[in-house]
Amino acid sequence: MKKLLTVLVMFCVIFVVGCGSKNTTSGSSSSPAGTTAASASSEAPKGEVKVMKMATANAKDRSLTRGLVKFGELVEKETNGSIKVEVYPDGQLGGDIQVFEAMKIGSVQGSTMSTGPIASFSKRFNIFDLPFLFKDAETAYKVLDGDIGQELLSELPAAGVVGLGYMENGFRDLTNNKREVKSPDDVKGLKIRTLENELHIELWKTLGATPTPMAITELFTALEQKVVDGQENPSGNIKLNKFYEVQKYVTKTGHVYNASPLIISNKFWEQLSDQEKEAIKKAAAESITWQRAENQKESKEAYDFLAQNGMTVTELTPEEKQKFVDALKPVYDKFKPTIGEDLVNKLLEAVK
């Protein structure tokens, strides 16, 4: 009898250990996107697909979101399917600041967002949000794709992400529901939603407005409930976020050109093979060129749409725009020490 009990006990132990081993293997295959079954290895086992969750606060049909979709298609093609890209638009995974934090820990693998939010994590990126810096998009492309743009991208790994290049959000314009804006004096007293960025907050303070930083995912409701009087965004965002439903006036101030870096979680990047990294770089370059062209087209079409949907679209004369330029010169003086005076002067020389 004792022998029989001993045999039964041993059989149960073997059965339990076997089941436990099976469960561990199953769990490793469903580990978070971008990680591998063997945490010590930076190379995915043969046949395992790495998943890239790309999150953006932009609307589904925005050129930036479509640029991420294009990037994903190219990545999957160039890696022969070893990397699968999933795009989450409309702030499904949070606003820009939340997404950046998620990228730092690796729970989100990539995004594109304006330089304003990025500057919260890498201060020198404020340089690209200095008011009236670029006279046109072509000038911006030359700087961003040149030495200065690449120098700034090289600083991003210290903040937990890798920069692959610059997509385009576009020139930011002012909307409000109080009055037509033609001069800096017209801005005084308006409650304006801004990016969650100290330079943007200072910009609107300098013009006499009351800046209110918040994520774009909260903005429509804030405008509808009159928490703020207005906001500022590229025309494509004004259209696709339907701000025309709760705003009457749009002024083509073009006060800030917004580049939108394409960024990847450093934790995810370090788990890729050299071949996968090269494939992602190639896909990034091609998708950036494609997205910029799409954004230019989108921006032009948006103004006609806004006018047709009841907004008063105001184009500033050169003299009126110069008044804004002059009024915002103190912003340069305030942020030069933080950004670096040498870098600011180098950039001002480059944009000439």
Rank of each mutant, 00 (worst) to 15 (best):
K3H: 03
F11H: 01
G18E: 05
N23K: 11
S28G: 08
G34S: 00
S39W: 09
S39N: 07
G47Q: 10
V49M: 02
V51R: 09
K53H: 08
M54R: 02
L64K: 10
L68A: 13
K77S: 14
I83N: 00
I83Q: 01
Y88F: 15
G91E: 12
G95N: 10
G95F: 06
D96Y: 09
Q98F: 08
K104R: 15
Q109W: 07
Q109S: 00
G110L: 03
S111M: 15
T112P: 00
M113E: 13
M113I: 12
S114R: 02
A119S: 15
F125K: 08
N126E: 14
F128P: 01
P131K: 00
D136H: 12
Y141H: 11
K142N: 13
K142Y: 05
D145G: 01
E151H: 10
G160W: 11
M167S: 02
R172I: 08
D173H: 15
D173W: 09
R179S: 13
E180T: 13
P184V: 06
D185F: 01
V187W: 08
K188L: 05
L199W: 06
H200K: 03
I201D: 11
E202L: 00
E202N: 05
G208F: 07
I216R: 06
T221Q: 13
A222N: 09
A222C: 10
Q225L: 13
N237V: 15
K239M: 14
K242W: 04
Y244F: 15
Y244S: 09
T251K: 02
K252W: 06
K252N: 11
G254S: 10
H255D: 11
I264N: 07
F268C: 01
L272I: 08
E276Q: 15
E278V: 02
A285E: 14
S287R: 06
S287P: 09
S287H: 07
I288M: 09
W290T: 03
R292S: 00
A293C: 01
E298D: 15
A302C: 06
Y303M: 08
F305Y: 15
F305P: 04
L306W: 08
A307R: 14
Q308L: 04
T312I: 02
T312D: 12
T314H: 04
T314N: 07
L316G: 02
L316C: 02
T317N: 05
P318Y: 09
D326R: 03
A327T: 06
A327Q: 05
K329F: 02
D342W: 04
V344I: 13
L348I: 04
E349G: 07
K352R: 13
